[in-house]
C-alpha cells in the first residue's frame, strides 16, 4: 500500500502477434464492399470457425440468426474465403480449402483441381498410377502433386502454433518511481506448510517398524520439498535482480535488448549454467516493456 500513489498502472500484453481470429476480424473490417450487417455476419462466421479453420455451421442457420437471406451470408463467406489470409480459411472441408488456395494462387491448369476434387486421398501415392487413371503424362501429374503438397489442408493449423500463449508471468519487474522492484507472481501456487501433528506418531511405539519408516520418509520428503520450493523462489528473484542490473536501459525503454550471456549470470549468482537453464525454462517475466519469456534475456 505504501507504493500505491506512485505506481504506474498499465495493461500488460504479451509481445506477440494477434490470434488468427483477431487477425481475420481486422482483415474483415478492411473489406470495403461490406456494410454493417455484413460485418456482423462475417465476425459471426470467423468466431465460429473450428480449430482447423473450417466453417461448420450451415449458412441457413446464420441467415436465420441475422434475419437475412442465405445468399447474403454466402456473399460474406465468399469475401472471407477470397480476400482474407491465410488462403483456404473458412472453407467447409479440406477439399474446398485446397481448391480455394489453387484459385487464389491463380493456377490455370485444370489438373491440380481435378486431382483435389476426385483423387485427394491418392495425391501422396503412385503418380504413374494416377497418370494412367487420368490419361495424362506422368510428369504433369508429378508436378501437379508437388504443387498440391505445398498447400495446407487445415489453414488454422499453421497459426495455432504461433498463437499467443496464455501467459502467466512467474516474475514481475515493476518500476516504482526511479527504481525497479522484483517479485514473484505465485498467483496459482497455494501457500503450503509443514504439518507437524503426525510427527509425534513417529516416536510413539504404536506403529510397526514399517509404518514408522514410511512416516520418516514422508517427513524427509516434506522438508526437502519445502526447502526446494524456497530455493526456487529465491533463485528466480535473484535472476530478476540480475536482469534489473544488466538490462536496466532496456527496462527503462532507453535501449534495445542485448541478451546477457548465461555464463555471466551463472557466475554472478554463483550457480552452474545448467541451473540457470532450469530456472529459465517455461517461465515468463512481466516488465514495464511487456511480458517476455525469461529466456529472451539470455544467450
Amino acid at each position: 500500500p505504501v507504493y500505491l500513489p506512485s505506481k504506474e498502472y498499465r495493461e500488460y500484453h504479451t509481445v506477440d502477434k494477434p490470434s488468427l481470429k483477431e487477425h481475420l476480424v481486422m482483415g474483415l473490417h478492411l473489406l470495403e464492399e461490406l456494410d454493417e450487417t455484413d460485418l456482423a455476419i462475417g465476425e459471426y462466421i470467423i468466431y465460429n470457425l473450428d480449430d482447423r479453420g473450417f466453417i461448420t455451421i450451415p449458412l441457413e442457420s446464420i441467415a436465420k440468426r441475422f434475419n437475412v437471406d442465405t445468399e447474403r451470408v454466402g456473399k460474406v463467406l465468399i469475401a472471407i474465403q477470397e480476400e482474407l489470409d491465410p488462403p483456404g480459411i473458412a472453407a467447409r472441408n479440406a477439399m474446398e480449402c485446397m481448391l480455394i488456395q489453387l484459385r487464389r494462387m491463380g493456377v490455370k491448369d485444370d489438373l491440380p483441381y481435378l486431382l483435389v476434387e476426385r483423387y485427394l486421398p491418392m495425391i501422396g501415392s503412385d503418380t504413374a498410377f494416377l497418370a494412367r487413371l487420368l490419361n495424362r503424362p506422368e510428369e504433369e501429374v508429378k508436378s501437379a502433386c508437388t504443387l498440391l503438397h505445398k498447400l495446407t489442408a487445415f489453414p488454422a493449423k499453421a497459426w495455432q502454433e504461433s498463437d499467443p500463449p496464455s501467459v502467466l508471468p512467474d516474475l514481475i519487474i515493476d518500476k516504482l518511481d526511479d527504481r525497479f522492484e522484483v517479485y514473484l507472481n505465485e498467483a496459482m501456487i497455494p501457500k503450503i506448510r509443514y504439518f507437524k501433528e503426525y510427527e509425534t506418531l513417529i516416536y510413539k511405539n504404536e506403529l510397526s517398524e514399517e509404518e514408522q519408516k514410511l512416516l520418516e520418509t514422508m517427513k524427509q520428503e516434506a522438508f526437502e520439498f519445502l526447502r526446494n520450493l524456497d530455493r526456487r523462489r529465491s533463485l528466480l528473484i535473484e535472476v530478476g535482480n540480475f536482469l534489473v542490473e544488466r538490462v536496466h536501459q532496456f527496462l527503462c525503454g532507453e535501449a534495445d535488448l542485448t541478451p546477457v550471456m548465461i555464463e555471466e549470470a551463472a557466475h554472478t549468482l554463483g550457480v552452474p549454467v545448467s541451473t540457470i537453464l532450469y530456472a529459465l525454462r517455461g517461465k515468463y517475466v512481466q516488465t514495464p516493456r511487456g511480458i517476455f519469456p525469461l529466456s529472451k534475456f539470455f544467450t
Binding site: D170, M188, R193, Y194, Y198, M218, N228, R232, Y278, G282
Partner: peptide, 30 residues
C-alpha cells in the same frame, strides 16, 4: 530434486503440490 522443481512452470508446480498434499501427511495447504 531442486532442479526438477526449479524447471517447473506454475501450472506444473501446482500439479506437484496437489499430488504431494494428497499423499504426504506432513504437508498441508495453509
Amino acid at each position: 530434486g531442486f532442479l526438477e522443481i526449479l524447471a517447473k512452470s506454475q501450472v506444473e508446480l501446482l500439479d506437484v503440490i496437489e499430488q504431494l498434499v494428497e499423499t504426504n501427511l506432513f504437508l498441508e495447504i495453509a
